[in-house]
Design a protein around this nucleic acid. Structure first.
Lengths: 336, 336
DNA sequence: TTGAAAGCGCTAACAA
DNA sequence: TTGTTAGCGCTTTCAA
C-alpha cells in the first residue's frame, strides 16, 4: 500500500494533522517542525495517496477528454491545448479514446464519472448526445468540442466548417477552376457534410461552375489513395479540374493516387487539390497541399475555459465558434 | 459529490452492505432485493466512486504507461497492445506523455505513484533510470519498454535494434548497393546508435562496401527533408547509392527531399531507401518505403504480461527481446 | 503552534 | 439473507 501519512507522523514525532499542514499550509507550522517532517518524508519515501485526497475533497483535479480518435493528429493537438490551459489552473487532463465507437465512448465517459472528474470535454459521435445529458443531470459539466452548436444547452467550441468549405471552394474558383469534386465521408459525420455544404454554396455563386461529391467510407489515407487512382481518368479527360478533400489524410492519399497511377497527372497543372486540418504531413507532401487550418490548440484551451465558466452557478452555456483560415501551398497553384 | 451508496440504500430500503453485495456478489442476495436495489440505482443515477473503492482496496485497477512521445504512431500502437492485454485482465491503461522531456517523465511517474497504480510501463529517457529504482523501492513494479536490456534488475521488453540495422543493411548490400549512408540522431538515443551499429557490422562483412553517418537533430519528417535535399548531389554524382534511415518519419522526409529538389533523383533507380518502424505512412509514400517492422502491439501486450509476472513474490525479472522483420517495398528495388 | 477526531464512500468481516 | 461496523488515507475543524 505504500507509506502513509501516519507513518510519517510517527517517524517525525508529530500528529498526522501537522504533517498534513506541512504539506498544505506550511506557513502555519513552526519552521523546525516543517524540517523534521520533511526529513521523515524523505527517509520514508512518502508519496501522498491521491485516492484518499480525492475522497476527502469530494472532487478530482482532473478533466476528462474523450477524443474521437487519438491517432488523428488533430485531436492530440486539441488535447495538448487543453492540457496547457488546465495546467495553468493546476489541473490535469486525462485522455481517452473513443476510436469512433459508441460503446467505447460510453465506457470512457462512465470511467470519468466514477472518478468524479471536474468535467468532461468530448467530441461526441452523432448518437452520443442523449447520454451526455444524463451525465450533466448527474452534476458533471460537459463541454462539446468540434461539434457545432446544434444543442445550445451545452457549452461548445467549434470551427465554422461551412465557412471552411466555402473558403476552400472560393479559392479554387478564384484560381479559374470550374469542375470541382468533393471527396469525403461518411456524410453522417457532421464536419464532412458542413464542409461540403459550404463548398456547394460557393460553387452556386459562380455561373459555369459545378461540384460533385464522392462519398468515402472513412477519412483515411487508404480511402484517399483509392479515390485518387479512380479520379486519374476524369482529370486526364478534363472532366475534373479541382479536388476538395474533407481532411488532410484523404488529401494526401488522393495526391498519391493521382501521382502514382499508370497515367499520372500533374498537380496543380492538371488538377488543383485542397485539404482540411493542415496537419504537418500536408506541408510535407511531395506537392505541398493547400489546406484549411483550424486553431487546434486554441480549441482545447477554450474548451477548458468554457468548462470553468459553466461550473459557476447560474452561468449560461456559451457557444464559441472560430473562423478557419486558408493556408495556400503549391497544390492549388495556377493551371498549366 | 454525486449520489452515494448510502442514498441508494435508503431509497431501496436496505443497508449499504446489501447494496455493495448487489454490486459485487449478486448471487449472495435475494433476487427480489437485487431488483429493488437496481431500481433505486437507476432512479438515482448512481455511479460508484472509484476513489473510495480504491482507497478501500488499497490499489487501483490501472496500469500507467509513460510514453516517450504520444505523437509517434509507434508508441500509440504499443499502448494499444498494452490496453488490449490489460482489458483481458480487467485492468485499464493510463497513458501519459513525456514528450522527450525528463521533467515531464518524472512528473508523470509521480502522478502514477500517487494514484497507487498496479505498476508502470515506461520507455525511459537515458537519464531516468535512477529514479525508476526509487519507484520500485517504494513497491511499485516497473517494466522497461523498448529500452534494451542494460539493467537486468528490471523486467524489460524490446526489439533487437542491432539485428534490425543489420537486416536493413544486408538487404541493401544483397541488392548490389555499396555506398551506404545512415541518417539518424541524436546518437544519445539508444535505438539510433544500435541500428547504426548493426548496419555497420553488415557493411564490415563486405569488402568494397562503405557506410557513413549523418547525424540529425531529431527523428522528424522535417529533419528528413533537410537531409534528403542535401543528399541529392551525392546521389547524382554516384557517391551514395543507398540510404538507411533511423525511423520512418525520417525516411519519408528523405524521400521527399530527394524527389522534390531541383535535380530530382529516382528511387530506387539512383538510390535505394530503407526506413524503420513500418508506420502506415511508409507504405503510402509516393515510392512505397521498405522498412524494418517491429511487433508494436506485441511489445505492449508482453509488457503487461511481464508486469503481472514480476508482481508475483519471488519472481525474477525477465528480459524479452523480439526479432525485427524486413518488409520489402519498391524503394529498395534493383538499381536502374 | 500542535493534537485529536470526524467523516468522505466503499468493502468485507462478523453478527443477527 | 441481510444489517452493522471498522477502517482504508487524508483534510479540516475545534480544542488545547
Amino acid at each position: 500500500m505504500g507509506v502513509s501519512i501516519k507513518e510519517v507522523a510517527a517517524r517525525a514525532g508529530v500528529s498526522v494533522g501537522t504533517v498534513s499542514n506541512v504539506l498544505n499550509r506550511p506557513d502555519m507550522v513552526k519552521a523546525e517542525t516543517v524540517e523534521k517532517v520533511h526529513a521523515a518524508i524523505d527517509e520514508l519515501g512518502y508519496v501522498p495517496n491521491s485516492a484518499a485526497q480525492q475522497l476527502r475533497e469530494g472532487q478530482s483535479r482532473s478533466i476528462g477528454f474523450v477524443a474521437l480518435d487519438v491517432r488523428n493528429p488533430f485531436f492530440t493537438d486539441v488535447a495538448s491545448g487543453a492540457e496547457r490551459a488546465a495546467a495553468q489552473a493546476g489541473l490535469s487532463v486525462l485522455l481517452a479514446n473513443s476510436a469512433e465507437s459508441v460503446e467505447r465512448e460510453t465506457w470512457n465517459i462512465e470511467l470519468f464519472e466514477r472518478q468524479r472528474v471536474r468535467g468532461v470535454l468530448v467530441s461526441p459521435l452523432a448518437e452520443g448526445l442523449e447520454r451526455l445529458r444524463d451525465v450533466r443531470r448527474r452534476g458533471i459539466p460537459v463541454v462539446l468540442v468540434d461539434r457545432g452548436t446544434e444543442d445550445t444547452t451545452f457549452p461548445s467550441v467549434a470551427v465554422d466548417d461551412v465557412a471552411g468549405g466555402e473558403l476552400a471552394a472560393s479559392h479554387l474558383l478564384d484560381g479559374g477552376r470550374r469542375r470541382l469534386v468533393f471527396v469525403g465521408g461518411p456524410t453522417s459525420i457532421r464536419q464532412v457534410s458542413d464542409r461540403y455544404r459550404g463548398a456547394a454554396a460557393a460553387v452556386a455563386g459562380v455561373d459555369d461552375a459545378t461540384i460533385t461529391s464522392i462519398e468515402t467510407d472513412g477519412l483515411s489515407l487508404q480511402e484517399g489513395m483509392r479515390v485518387g487512382a479512380e479520379l486519374c481518368e476524369s482529370v486526364a479527360s478534363g472532366r475534373v479540374d479541382a479536388i476538395l478533400a474533407a481532411n488532410d489524410l484523404l488529401a494526401i492519399g488522393v495526391e498519391q493516387g493521382l501521382l502514382g497511377g499508370d497515367h499520372p497527372v500533374t498537380i496543380p497543372g492538371d488538377v488543383a487539390l485542397v485539404g482540411y486540418d493542415d496537419i504537418s504531413f500536408a506541408a510535407a507532401a511531395v506537392v505541398p497541399i493547400t489546406s484549411v487550418r483550424q486553431p487546434r490548440e486554441l480549441l482545447g484551451e477554450t474548451a477548458v475555459a468554457l468548462l470553468e465558466e459553466v461550473r459557476r452557478p447560474g452561468a449560461a452555456p456559451r457557444q464559441v465558434v472560430f473562423e478557419p483560415e486558408l493556408v495556400v501551398r503549391a497544390s492549388s497553384g495556377p493551371p498549366a
